[in-house]
Design a protein around this nucleic acid. Structure first.
Lengths: 177, 177
DNA sequence: AAGATCATGTAAGAGGTTACATGATTGA
DNA sequence: TCAATCATGTAACCTCTTACATGATCTT
């Protein structure tokens, strides 16, 4: 329901192409929003039809042309309206927990191997987020103040990933006995 | 893709009606799986058609009849196959973070009010999970061993909720300055 | 020469949400 | 008497995933 709003929030900060948005979701905002390129392009099309955003074609030498989208006044208003209303709590569907819950149907090794694989990916996400945090902390006070709210969302990612890893360690220790 | 498997995992533990499953998701397993009753009934229908589960009608005095589903051998096999294969990492789409990211488009009071509302709901979820944990810890060693894997998933809920609340406190303190 | 990156899309199908529908019992 | 709980479903609509499609440049 709100991929639309996630896109608008990013475009409100800076004009981007669909490709840029997808990359941004993947490399930085995975703890926050996930979407496939097909879905992003579709929403960009719909938002353009509704005149919440517009685009200009940028031709590049050496690279394919791209459409750089920016938010319109109508879009900024729509986004403001959405942001002023309460949001629904985050829906959780965690297949790994389903697997663990029914783990007696497979081997302990399989469970531990799967956990180890997920742990690796969470570790690399955390590392990435900590790097972004370091960059933020090196900014001057003005810039830090300017990016305070995005930084707060980054903190959610960091605290969340640390908690996930803490849990995984506990599970590993408990199951290894 | 795996509401199906979430249902099977619960039925593998104990036969239940659709209503029971929904209640179970709502009251205990919200940190792990969420689904609407319509979606649950639909999956039960499909699983029955595939002969992964069967049901018996239970007529009750004072209450409507219900269909009590149980897993079949075919279902147990299908579930085992799924559990032995790697699961995809949990997809996160967190509208509250989108709102916070674009929080400059609304008032600080609105953000803090919204955060406070979410905090309340996370606090009550945590309280509920801690009660379930206490019940588990009062079981004898044999029963504790028997429910070890579901308990590990419960720990994920507890650690996750605590981390969420820790983050919310940090945001409150930072924004209140 | 092969694979990754840049860049954008269409179409079919699966999955999820919202609205509508029914009806008895129980507790405040 | 009003709301909540028990209990199950259909239908329309929206959203997301998977598969298919194209083609240039850059890196190994």
């Amino acid at each position: 329901m709100s991929l639309k709003h996630a896109i608008l929030v990013l475009l409100e900060t800076e004009p981007s192409s669909g490709y840029d948005l997808v990359k941004h979701f993947k490399s930085r905002l995975g703890y926050f929003w996930n979407a496939k390129h097909q879905q992003v392009y579709l929403q960009l099309k719909k938002l353009t039809e509704d005149e919440w955003i517009t685009f200009k074609a940028h031709s590049q030498s050496n690279k394919p042309d791209k459409k750089v989208y920016e938010i319109t006044e109508l879009g900024r208003k729509g986004l403001g309206d959405w942001i002023s209303q309460p949001v629904k709590p985050n829906k959780i569907n965690d297949a790994l927990l389903v697997k663990l819950y029914g783990g007696h149907l497979t081997s302990k090794d399989n469970i531990l191997a799967e956990l180890a694989a997920h742990k690796k990916s969470h570790e690399s996400v955390l590392e990435n987020l900590l790097n972004i945090e370091n960059n933020y902390l090196e900014l001057n006070k003005d810039k830090q103040a300017h990016y305070l709210l995005p930084y707060m969302t980054l903190r959610r990612g960091i605290i969340g990933e640390k908690a996930w890893l803490e849990w995984a360690d506990e599970v590993e220790k408990t199951l290894s006995i």
